[in-house]
Simulated assay, not measured.
Amino acid sequence: MHIVIAHFGTHYVGNPGGVEKVICQFSNEMIRRGHAVTILYRDYCEGNPYFPLDSRVVQNNILFQHGKKIISEKLPVGLRVLREIVRVFSKSGGQELNARFKGRQYGMQIQKYLAENPADVVLSCSVPSTKYVIDDAHCTAPVIQMMHSHPRYLFPRMSKAEKEAVGKCRVLQILLPSGLKTAKEFFPNLPVKVIGNPVYLPVKEAHPGDAKEKHLISCVGSLTKNKQQQLLCKAFARLAADYPDWNVELWGYSGSFGRSIQAWADKHSLSDRIFIKGKTTHVEEVYARSDIFCLPSRAEGWGLGLTEAMAAGVPAVGFKGCTGVEDLIQDGITGLLAENGDVDSLATALRSLMNDASKRKIMGQQAAESMKQYAPEKIWNEWEALLKDVIAGKK
């Protein structure tokens, strides 16, 4: 089968994001299984993803033709100003304006590519991508909506045009059972399939219960307001004096939010205890050195770094009420859940694990065991079966 992956919602080239990692893993596996895979994307340049990708996967930037950029990825200045004005009164309204204009730009190029390279099935990585493919490119191949955000977080923010486009998909895939209720509320007539992300066995295992000269609390993921790494730093500040052999490392794309955290650490004389490390292609080394993994996000579709750390045997800490985190951490078994957004509660959870090496070891072992339900072979089998059913018209 020829699988076309539509990735028009975020940057693609060199982007170390979770969506891009899953797309590359998916593409590599389907190529290995004998299928043809094309990734259609949009970005300001042509190039390769951050993560390893089989050379047989076709990549095509719809904004370029024969190496020359023919379409801008940005709205004209006037429309950008109008969009921001509309957003003041309606976030979905601003999103709708964005989607409609970009759809007119992108639709013709997507349609042209699919006419020359027919797809058996299109896998859309974002809601805007679905609109561009179905409504603007008039795609006749079956489309599967692949969700990377949690429905509870994303669906209420959709524009009317985006909601209508998703409703025309053949199947809606979501990552976690907790998203089923919202998915059915928004799309009562659309088949919904729960398929989690694959969690690969670690190259190296962590040893969170071992005696060490230095212990580590790690957090892996882009430094953003949503992931709230500043709350981890503030919680650690309450503990640092009592635990001089513990440090914090924040890994991932940094930017302005990372700089603000660095300034905070400098101001509170914690720059020798809290380290902003940036991106890495050897994240397994981080997990192997970790004694606790903390993801203090307000919302996640799926905590990818979280599941990778847990698979390595690291006990995890996150917030109750955070989608994509509380679904994966079993409170008191594979880690601890603090009260949502509460720095004192987060500090208490961290202290509980920092105090008890035996607890860290047992919870880490249970975390690794819990991730076996997302074994790659199982996840890819589910995906392949879904793709075949959709093509055959069984879905």
Rank of each mutant, 00 (worst) to 15 (best):
P118E: 04
S254Y: 01
I379Q: 06
C322G: 10
L123H: 13
A338K: 10
D136N: 14
Q366E: 13
T182A: 11
K212V: 07
E284I: 07
A211Y: 08
M147T: 08
V220S: 11
T348C: 12
L180W: 05
K359C: 09
Y374T: 02
R273F: 06
V171E: 04
D245F: 10
V122N: 02
Q173I: 10
E339P: 03
R33D: 05
E185P: 01
G321I: 06
S178C: 01
L295Q: 06
W380H: 12
V343L: 09
Q59K: 15
I329Q: 02
Q65E: 14
K267C: 01
I39H: 01
L114Q: 04
L232A: 11
A119Y: 08
C125H: 03
Q229A: 02
K181S: 13
L82V: 11
V133I: 15
V13Y: 02
L336R: 09
N60R: 11
Q365T: 02
M1I: 01
R42N: 14
G341Q: 13
Y106T: 02
G14Y: 09
V58R: 15
V122S: 03
G107M: 04
N226P: 02
I3E: 00
E46S: 08
I274W: 00
E96I: 00
Q105C: 15
K91Q: 13
P16Q: 14
N61K: 05
